[in-house]
Amino acid sequence: MKMSSLLLWLRAIKARAYVRVIGGNRELSWVITEVGLPVISLSAYIFIYRSLGAPRIYEGLVVLGGAMIPFWVGVLWSMATQFYWEKEMGNLDLFMASPMPPTALLLGMAIGGMFMSLMRTLFVIVVGVLIFHVQLSIHQPGLLTLVFLLTMTSLFSLGMAASSAYFMVGRVGMRLNQILMEPIYLLSGLYFPVTHLGRILVAFAALIPLTLGLDGVRQLVLVGGASLGFLSPRTEALALAAMTTVFTFGAVRLMRLLEQQGKQRGTMSLRWQ
């Protein structure tokens, strides 16, 4: 890669990430609403466990599950669907006509999206600790950081792959996105230990990065969390690394393929499809 191309690539990443890092956190009322409403939903699940008389560790499990929601929501709505919004607003054509490589655009979206989600996640954890008195104890911080980062990279590379679909489809893709919320909450064991799903379902659920990442984080952060785990955090880190590699290469290839297809079929700039 030439120096000028690399610079262009980095500038495009910075420009796209800037919108999310600065723009996404500029309006205080927006941030409050965005972090406040998910915390309210999460509280409902904590009250269920309290009403059932479940051990306190399950409340921690809900808080960590809730803390991962902004990332999944970010992948679905700020990554996968982003090209849909851009297409509807007429920006996608402009992006494609600009000199920047589309992969840099995706990477910028991913980096900015991760930052935006991280802010919301930290707030959920603070609420969990201060209001619900969840006990967290970080042991093996190195492994925890690795599992968390690999979860992020695999999740957002999955989002990058999904976003390419909008070169071809419109509302159908959007609808698919909508039904990937609650079913993924279910399969990734967001509010309960994923082992409750049973062997067959959990094997299927393990193909979703959120499942393994959340399970690993819970084992490394919750007091007694290892007893609720599915695989060891090291195994989960390896699986997440493999997913990151596959999804990233898949995303780049898919992007090239669908971009070409979208141009040929004229669906790239087709609004209200």
């Binding site: 269920i48 466990y49 399950y58 909450y185 279910l186 967001l190 230990p193 799903l197």
Partner: peptide, 13 residues
């Protein structure tokens, strides 16, 4: 999905 999620959640007790 939400109803089935509750089913698995209830399996805790």
């Amino acid at each position: 999905s939400l109803c089935i999620l509750l089913y698995f959640l209830y399996k805790v007790v």
